[in-house]
């Protein structure tokens, strides 16, 4: 009984010390959150949970946002800030990947060819330029993976 009380007192003391101690450190100005004690350099430089699919998607997203979103829109709705100008100049709107009818009619090899060789190569508008000399074959695959993800994420799908 006595012993149990002494143990619980010790535990309470330890807990109190633990909650006070971090406050003892030097004052940190304007910091969001410091590195956690249980994290490590390996953990901040390498994420083991990243599968090849996730890596491809992440890379595709960067490329899509950089090269495609200007016309096709950030969410793939065919409504990028330049879409209006493309419509005015060519009388076609950038493909909306979120539109299930439009997207459903798009075959994978056609889409890849369009990204690589431009609209005219697949019988579509020249408003879509070819990216095959700018992006590598792998990057074209990445972009397409992200576009597929955008169409899946579209509301109503």
């Amino acid at each position: 009984m006595n012993r149990a009380r002494r143990w619980s007192a010790a535990a309470a003391l330890l807990l109190a010390a633990a909650s006070v101690l971090p406050g003892c450190g030097p004052r940190r100005g304007g910091r969001a959150e410091p590195a956690r004690a249980d994290s490590s350099f390996a953990a901040v430089t390498y994420r083991r949970d990243k599968s090849p699919e996730a890596l491809s998607l992440a890379r595709g997203r960067v490329l899509y946002d950089r090269y495609c979103a200007i016309c096709h829109g950030e969410a793939g709705g065919g409504d990028g800030f330049n879409a209006y100008n493309v419509k005015a100049a060519f009388d076609v709107s950038p493909t909306a990947f979120t539109d299930s009818v439009t997207f459903g009619a798009l075959r994978e090899d056609t889409a890849l060819a369009a990204i690589r060789d431009g609209g005219p190569a697949v019988g579509r508008s020249p408003a879509m330029p070819p990216w095959g000399h700018t992006l590598t074959a792998g990057e074209v695959v990445d972009v397409w993976a992200y576009i597929k993800a955008l169409s899946r994420a579209a509301p109503g799908e």
Partner: peptide, 19 residues
């Protein structure tokens, strides 16, 4: 010029992109 879709990004006269 017509085939490459330059006007998607560049203005020519009154029409064309703003990229």
């Amino acid at each position: 010029f017509e085939r490459s879709g330059c006007r998607s990004c560049h203005q020519v006269g009154a029409t064309g992109g703003y990229v």
